[in-house]
Design a protein around this nucleic acid. Sequence first.
DNA 1: TTTAACAGCCAAATCGCTTTGGATAATTTT
DNA 2: AAAATTATCCAAAGCGATTTGGCTGTTAAA
Lengths: 343, 343
Amino acid sequence: MNLRQLSEVLGLSQTTVSRALNGYPEVSEKTRVRVREAAERHNYRPSLRATSLATGRTMMIGHVIPLSAREEMVNIIFTDFLAGAGEIYAQNGYAMRLSVVSDADEVEIYEDMKANGVVDGVLLHAPSENDQRIPLLDSLKLPFLVHGRATGTETPYSWLDVNNRRAIQRATEHLLELGHRRIALLNGLESYDFAIRRRSGYLGALEAAWIAADTSLMRSNEMTEPFGYKAGGEMLDQPNPPTAFIASSFVMALGVRRAIEERGLIMGRDVSVVCFDDDISYLPNGSDKPIFTALKSSVRAAGRRCAELLIAKINDEMPEEQHEQWEAELVIGPSTGPAPSES
Amino acid sequence: MNLRQLSEVLGLSQTTVSRALNGYPEVSEKTRVRVREAAERHNYRPSLRATSLATGRTMMIGHVIPLSAREEMVNIIFTDFLAGAGEIYAQNGYAMRLSVVSDADEVEIYEDMKANGVVDGVLLHAPSENDQRIPLLDSLKLPFLVHGRATGTETPYSWLDVNNRRAIQRATEHLLELGHRRIALLNGLESYDFAIRRRSGYLGALEAAWIAADTSLMRSNEMTEPFGYKAGGEMLDQPNPPTAFIASSFVMALGVRRAIEERGLIMGRDVSVVCFDDDISYLPNGSDKPIFTALKSSVRAAGRRCAELLIAKINDEMPEEQHEQWEAELVIGPSTGPAPSES
DNA sequence: TTTAACAGCCAAATCGCTTTGGATAATTTT
DNA sequence: AAAATTATCCAAAGCGATTTGGCTGTTAAA
């Protein structure tokens, strides 16, 4: 049943039926009720295809996953972030459009989305330093919101981000206060802006404590369990091993723990570990008591908020670019303790 | 630039331009080249909105996430499965449409999708026993493919599934061969069909070995790390604890391991653990050597294959319903060993 | 040489909705 | 009672593609 058929059944014009259903005032309350009832009775649902051609809106929000970033992004971020965003989208009548795309096509896909008119807005993930997608989206006049930030970008844009620098700085300070001097950083890929900021927080705290950074204690890679295990193990096997680790993700910290335990050491006594915890629903940092000392910030909540901001932007309810910076919460767990005295 | 403008520029009719670009034969090779070049030059891209209204196809495939299942589904399945499916979609010009929906609306959403015409097909996740969505989708004549199976459903439908029964049966047999007699099962939610099949495999193996099932050794819940930890710990604290565990997911097995180690026991010596391993990219069961003895089957590969099958179905290249059952591979790791002798 | 077949192109209808610009009747204002 | 509003409703023009049914010349068959 389409609009024409419904209007014929009712003996009304398509205009009136359309207006009645969409709540326009040029329709008497009596007919509106009559139309609503008929629509209900005949199970009429407007074709979104036609509506979007007529209105230019698709009620879809685009998320692009570049193939190269699959390992890191799809999993860590897309998992809970999308669940959060999806909730808000649903509440507002939107749906998500995910497209996996090879890196070479990454610029073109945004032009396509604009020209094709398949989405009303775009959520940008995991920006790098000086991310080219931002000026591109801006020039395309496609509403977008960035989850994270891109240092060095001159185009103004709206974003929501965790204060990554401050978070890791606090993690480092916490370890310094416990007397640690050899603190390792297992970071995410430093092509991403968040990882750059985290390193900067780490280096800042060390510098403030007059400790020279040791490059043998700094590694950066995809945030997987095996990388945490491997890099952590190698550092522990060094002649002058670290007494503490900062891991950029919970999953990496699991790997570090495995390396520690495999060497007969005890986490929290012999070696301390702090991690950044995105508060992943099915991999929580302990349900009752935490496993790791961590800087915690819910990526699902971020997804929700990003969705809200983007929808506001699409609806032109955002007069100027908005920025939201969240502070991560320091949760003390059993994985950190005083630095072992030198022996 | 739209079709009309392009055709005006070329001095051709819209019909001819459309046909030239879409490879129809009623166009001379000379004009086709001319049209292609002009399209390229003017950066013409057909509006998907208009195309889909005209053709009735949207080049989108729907995935529905019911809110209640968020914890379990979004994460475990959606993570790698979507990455795999997304790859194939991209290769074929499709994109994914994710909608998060509250349970009450779950039936209606499919009717909506059909009536609205927003997707060309649907991928059904995590079917339960006698899943009502299957007859519904069938009656709606919306092409769909089920990842998993739904026991008790009479409607014929196409599916791809792992042989869950056989997998867990083999896991159980492996432990029995090692001499274990008290084997615990930590299963996923048994409202899902896969969990029912796994339990059935477990019970079947026990029965074949003339061992009575002990309900104090069977638990079922969301497949999270904390649940594995909690249930595993409680069982170990029982007067007559199990000597081996079967965990329905890798993440749960991590929880079990934590419970084991916390009690000063050694996994693989004092207590054995086998798990089902979906081969999650960022949480692999060890990169070089496995952590757990496991039944392994890549959920990402399943995503890829499901996408292929569904696309074939949409394109009417599937004469009758197809079924594909995959066998999980038994990987022996250090987490299993002979049952400790009674003392 | 006539006729049939075909290659190449086009005008116009179609998909199903929204929205503009009236038209008509009822109501209010003068 | 006439004029000006206002409340309701409608016809038709869009959105931008695809596709049906024809209309011309050319070429091949009779």
